[in-house]
Structure formats: structure tokens, C-alpha cells
Design a protein around this nucleic acid. Structure first.
Lengths: 215, 215
DNA sequence: GACGATTTGGACAATGCTGTCTAGAAAAAT
DNA sequence: ATTTTTCTAGACAGCATTGTCCAAATCGTC
């Protein structure tokens, strides 16, 4: 037995886990670039620097591999969103600039980064084919994000910083405004530079505050 | 020669054209459902009620067929958007309800209808692989839509119905707000019923007017 | 250094798809 | 009615891909 006490039965140590990760990363890239049907295991193996057999050893199946990719991506993306959400300006010094900073982070770290783009593309491409798989994402992702963000806005309103009648709708519209200037570029895979992310965020926040700010 | 004088060289009459259309429709469905790589000619032929050879006769190639599909879809969608744009409320009776009506039409006839969903999906799936093809869409579609809509808003502002400092940004944000509540459902392929389209539009317009309406 | 587990690279059958080709049926044009 | 064109259905070669199998090489551990 090559197993170590501290690591459970099915997981031999060292490079094993490292390879599993590179395979997952390579698979993410290839699936996103080529789509599920267009991706082939040899590409993934080559891009992971691993033999084809190893891919099969780790993930068993093209479909299982795809599912693993989506799960990993969803988890990372959700974690990122909540990490950013944790820095929401609950006691803002300057509401506009604090909210803008928050929006910039949301764009940069969650929506326009590679995980965000990848996940978005996989959902758009294969969402219909794997309804159960992405139903999970929907509840854990947008579902919880919206209510969490809505709660933050409600608190701001309660503290007198905003005038809202429906925090839930406001939360969605906040996200919609943030994406308004970027979604076409995102769909075509353009690179979004820091400057565009900032100006998109600041325009969004300005309008948001025109609608819901205290005057 | 079986050609008629009134019809150019390459286009024999009757059912020929009809079949070309059914092939294009079937191809649109199949490409959207399965992605480019996942689609196969036999499916398309079967769904069009036509033999495989006929597909090749009409469009020559899987790739040429795909390009024809995208072109047709882009043209129809753009035409639809400009038709809707032509009914923009330039002399509004009741700004809020007129804008809402406009937004509902935009959702129902351009964005959430089957052409809109198909085009969106193809762009998301294959946009990277055919940059030139979709660059055309971008200029003719979103590009012109934005400036046209911005011009309408600018006129409304000039007539004293809105308070805008940047009609261009306002136009994009208007579209962003309209989609804010729908994009997740769209990505997962849900059916958007009339009621949801209306409430999304009316929420969007209410917020838009809170930001840019005259008070 | 010896052991067990993992990895490699290559071969392999099975399958599915593209695009071509054919001969005959069907449809349109004359 | 005849002729020309398009359509069908199926066969076909060529190719790519999936997933399995195996012997040899490699790696980590004892």
C-alpha cells in the first residue's frame, strides 16, 4: 500500500492530486474553447501534459469529466462572489465611490475573470443538455447572490443611504447595470481591461444612485 | 434549360427555394441545440424532411451552411429590432406606460423570441471561432441599435421629457435594465411568458425614469 | 535498493460523421 | 409527352474519436 494515514483510502499522495488539477484546468479550457462535442480527450491530455489513459484513470469518462469541470467552476465562482460580497460597503464613507469600488471588484474578480467567462459560456452552451447540473448552479449562484445583495441594499436603505421600495429588484438591476456595457464584448470574448471595467462600474453606480440615492 | 427569365441563373423555381428555407430552419434548430461540432448533417436533413444530398446541393458544406444560418438569423433579428425601434414613443402621452410598451415589444419580439435566443446562443458558442462573421453582427446589430436608441432618448431629453447627460450610456443602461431579470432564465433556456416579460419591462422602465425622468 | 502504485505511449475495435457517388424516382419545364 | 433538372436512398471511403488493454517506464515509499 502506497497510502498515507492522513489521506483517505482513494487518494494516493503527491503528483496524483496535482495531475488531477491540471487535467481539470486543461479540460476547462478545452471544453470552453471547443464546446462539449468539439472537445476531445487527446487535446485535454496534451494540454494537461498527461497521457490519455491518465485522464481516464482520474475521471473515468468524457461526461464525468465535463461534470467535474462544471462543478469546480461553479464552486470557485460562487466562492469568489461571496468573498466580494463580504466587502460590500455596509458603512459607506462616500457611498458613490464605495459602491463603485465594490462594482469594480465584482466585474474584475467574478464576472470578467476567466472563471466567470468560462462558466458563463458553459452554461450558455450546455445548459439545456444538463438541466439538473445547472439548476444547482442557479440556486447556489444567482439565487443566493441576489438575496444576499438585496439584504445589503435593504440595510443601506434602512440606514438612510438609499430609497428603495423593493431591494430584490434593485439588486438585480444593479447587476444588470454593471453588465450593460460589457455583455456584448464578453459574448464575443474580448478582453476587458481595467479601464473599461472601471468606467462601466462607475456609470452603473451613478445611474443606480440617481434612481435610488437620497437627494 | 429549366430556368425562367425572371429568376437569375442559379435559382430554379418552386420547391427548390422552399426546401432551401426548411433546410435553413432545421439547421438553425440543430446548430443551436447541439452546437456546431455536435450538429450533424443527417439530423438536419431529417428535421428538414429532405435527403442528405439535398442539403449538400443547396449549401455545399457544413461550414457554409452554418454561415448561412448565422447570416439569416442576424438579418432577421436586426430587421426586427429596427421595426420595433420605429415604434419608439417620440411624442409620449404617458411616458412611463409608453416606454414600458416599447420595452415589452423589445423583449417579446427581439430578445426573447426564438430568433433572438438562437442568435444569442450561436454568438456565445461560436463567436470566438468566427470573429469576422460576428463582427458584422456587432456593427449592424448592437452598434446601430445603441446609437439609434440613444438618438431617440436624446430627442426625448431635448423635448424636456428626460434629463440625460449622456444619451449613449442611458441607451445601453436601458437595455441592461430590461435584461436584468431575464438573462439567467434566458441562458438556461426557460420559456419567458408574457407576464414575466411585462413585469421585467415595467420594473426596468420605473427605475430608468427614477434615474432620468423629470421630477 | 525493492516494492507497489501510477503513468506512459502505443495499439486496438467500435462507432459516428463528412462528403462523394450512384442509379432510379419524382417534379418542372418545354 | 418529352426532356431536363432536382430529389432520394443508400452505399462508400476516409477520417476522427472514444474507451479499453497492455507492457514498459517512472515515481514515491519503505
Amino acid at each position: 500500500m502506497a497510502f498515507t494515514d492522513t489521506i483517505p483510502d482513494n487518494c494516493p499522495p503527491r503528483t496524483h492530486a496535482a495531475k488531477r488539477v491540471s487535467i481539470l484546468e486543461a479540460a476547462t479550457d478545452v471544453f470552453c474553447r471547443e464546446g462539449y462535442a468539439g472537445a476531445n480527450i487527446d487535446m485535454i491530455a496534451a494540454e494537461a501534459g498527461v497521457s490519455r489513459q491518465t485522464v481516464y484513470n482520474h475521471h473515468g469518462d468524457k461526461e464525468k469529466l465535463f461534470i467535474a469541470v462544471v462543478r469546480a467552476l461553479t464552486e470557485r465562482t460562487n466562492a469568489g462572489i461571496f468573498a466580494t460580497l463580504a466587502r460590500f460597503p455596509d458603512q459607506p464613507q462616500d457611498l458613490e465611490s464605495d459602491l463603485t469600488e465594490f462594482a469594480v471588484r465584482l466585474n474584475r474578480n467574478c464576472i470578467c475573470n476567466s472563471d466567470g467567462k468560462h462558466l458563463r459560456k458553459l452554461i450558455e452552451m450546455e445548459g439545456q443538455r444538463y438541466p439538473e447540473l445547472f439548476a444547482g448552479w442557479r440556486e447556489e449562484g444567482p439565487g443566493k447572490t441576489w438575496t444576499a445583495l438585496a439584504a445589503r441594499f435593504a440595510r443601506l436603505a434602512h440606514a438612510g443611504h438609499l430609497e428603495l421600495d423593493n431591494p430584490d429588484i434593485a439588486a438585480r438591476q444593479f447587476l444588470g447595470l454593471i453588465n450593460a456595457e460589457l455583455d456584448v464584448s464578453m459574448a464575443l470574448g474580448d478582453k476587458i481591461d481595467e479601464h473599461r471595467a472601471r468606467s462601466a462600474a462607475s456609470n452603473a453606480v451613478r445611474t443606480f444612485l440617481r434612481a435610488f440615492g437620497r437627494h
